[in-house]
Design a protein around this nucleic acid. Structure first.
Length: 462
DNA sequence: AAGCGTACCAACCGCTTTAGA
DNA sequence: CTCTAAAGCGGTTGGTACGCT
């Protein structure tokens, strides 16, 4: 079977039956197997055996993917429904692609991660046959490797890589009520001009734009953010006032994406602030989008959620009834007044983001999860120079950005810090960043280039 | 050859979201 | 509208293989 033949050593373990290889936890389980004193079946944990797999496959063949808890009852498998589901999805279902990731897949993952964050499940939509678990494991491994080799987490080629079907749409919005009736439409710049500049421009805002990724509520509870999200929220409040004729507390974005949603708490319905980007997958029935919801009222802390996959609702609009999203990455914003305008230009990739943004993205992305958790617990370390100009992103001209495509330009160099070298551990100034000035600059660029070439020579291998 | 450290990855855990009664 | 179970998701853990000393 392809399923097993392409797997490496770990697959050998599961290929054999438990008769031969018994993991310690399975041994433990075996002493507990069978009905408990209460008459309940003690569920088995640990690696699946081939016989268990066969039972599950047969069950799935007959019944399909539903009612996972019934599997245990019907088959006698001493596995929880949850475990069965996981086993099926990650290993047994048809059309799974096994083996190491191809260079294209690696680029896809990096590119998607830049925009989606740790949304592994969403990434699978662009990686046929791959599982979220697989992608996640790959990425965690990659982070470790990149930290060790001091390579940037994202290479320029990855950020410029076009993932088929992955389209950023930052230009147009449409708000609709639940029935899909249009209540507001326009250009995203309406919102951006209103609300985002003060939001992003502040260097202490731990926005991990492009997409505020991974910003947890606890992280955003940091002192510095509270005051500065005010501008963001105020802007969105203003925008929402434009929507005063929204009949319900929920809007649906063109393409079925919800744009505005009711805050789960608080009486202030004017703060239904949710921002979106959109992508669509041609040929697919799925029209997911990026959603960025801030789910906290004006004066409180803000939770900016990770972008989430949204499936169209039955009565929703489709892109056919609305100007389709622009070709990926081809919208040119001449004025970079918002995080979206800046961050959704992959051609500029991380270089186009402000230095701070890039820095934050990288430093965070390079952090292992435990470290990220620690960051969140501590409301983020102070990694932003206190003297950072507030409108750092506002006055970048198009001409400046053109230089970003030139890896030897000043801007390019200064905007491509070596993330792993600048873990968020202390206050530093801009002058200390590599590439901006001083000996670290050329070296950093050199390492960047070296890393890129090495990467192409040695794609992920085990 | 043995010991140790590390990479990999399957599986689990706990939380959130969704569906349905 | 509320409650509960199921499903989904992301983070974490732990076992095995492998490479290095």
């Amino acid at each position: 079977m392809i399923l097993f033949s392409l797997r490496s050593h770990n697959m050998n373990r599961e290929k054999d039956d438990s008769d031969r290889i018994i993991a310690p936890n399975v041994q433990l389980e075996s002493s507990l197997s069978g009905p408990s004193s209460a008459g309940e079946t003690v569920l088995k944990k640990g690696p699946w055996t081939s016989s268990e797999d066969a039972i599950l496959v047969e069950y799935m063949r007959e019944h399909g993917e539903r009612n996972w808890n019934a599997v245990q009852k019907s088959t006698g498998l001493r596995r929880s429904g949850k475990s069965c589901r996981l086993r099926w999805i990650n290993h047994l279902r048809p059309n799974l692609k096994k083996g190491t990731f191809t260079p294209e897949e690696e680029k896809t993952i990096a590119h998607l991660h830049y925009y989606l964050g740790n949304k592994w499940a969403q990434m699978t939509a662009f990686l046929p046959g791959r599982t979220d678990n697989e992608i996640k494991n790959y990425w965690n491994s990659r982070i470790r490797k990149r930290q060790q080799t001091r390579l940037p987490l994202y290479s320029a080629s990855e950020l410029n890589y076009r993932v088929p079907g992955f389209t950023l749409n930052t230009n147009m919005y449409r708000c609709a009520d639940r029935r899909g009736r249009k209540v507001l439409q326009g250009a995203m710049t309406d919102f951006l001009d209103i609300g985002f500049q003060p939001f992003v421009a502040n260097p202490r805002t731990p926005s991990r734009s492009p997409l505020f990724r991974d910003i947890s509520s606890t992280g955003l509870a940091s002192q510095g953010l509270r005051s500065h999200t005010h501008g963001f929220n105020a802007g969105m409040k203003h925008a929402m006032q434009l929507m005063e004729n929204v009949p319900q507390n929920r809007g649906i974005m063109a393409g079925g994406q919800r744009m505005f949603e009711q805050l789960p708490h608080g009486p202030d319905s004017a703060n239904k602030n949710l921002l979106f980007l959109g992508y669509s997958k041609p040929g697919s029935h799925i029209q997911p989008n990026y959603n960025f919801s801030t789910s906290r009222p004006l004066t409180g802390t803000v939770k900016v959620e990770l972008p989430s996959l949204q499936y169209p609702e039955p009565d929703s609009y489709s892109w056919q009834t609305f100007p389709p999203p622009p070709p990926p990455y081809e919208a040119i914003h001449t004025h970079f007044q918002s995080p979206l305008a800046v961050s959704t230009q992959p051609y500029f990739a991380s270089p186009s983001s402000s230095l701070v943004e890039t820095f934050v993205q990288g430093s965070h992305a390079m952090s292992p999860s435990w470290q990220q958790s620690a960051e969140r617990r501590s409301n983020y370390p102070a990694i932003y120079p206190s003297n950072m100009p507030k409108n750092l992103t506002a006055n970048i001209s198009a001409a400046d950005l053109e230089g970003l495509s030139d890896p030897y330009s000043h801007f390019y160099r200064s905007a491509v810090p070596q993330f792993s070298e600048f873990a968020p551990t202390s206050n530093i100034s801009l002058d200390e960043l590599p590439g901006s000035k001083g000996p670290a600059g050329p070296g950093a660029l050199s390492r960047w280039n070296t890393g890129a070439s090495r990467e192409t020579q040695q794609p992920h291998s085990r």
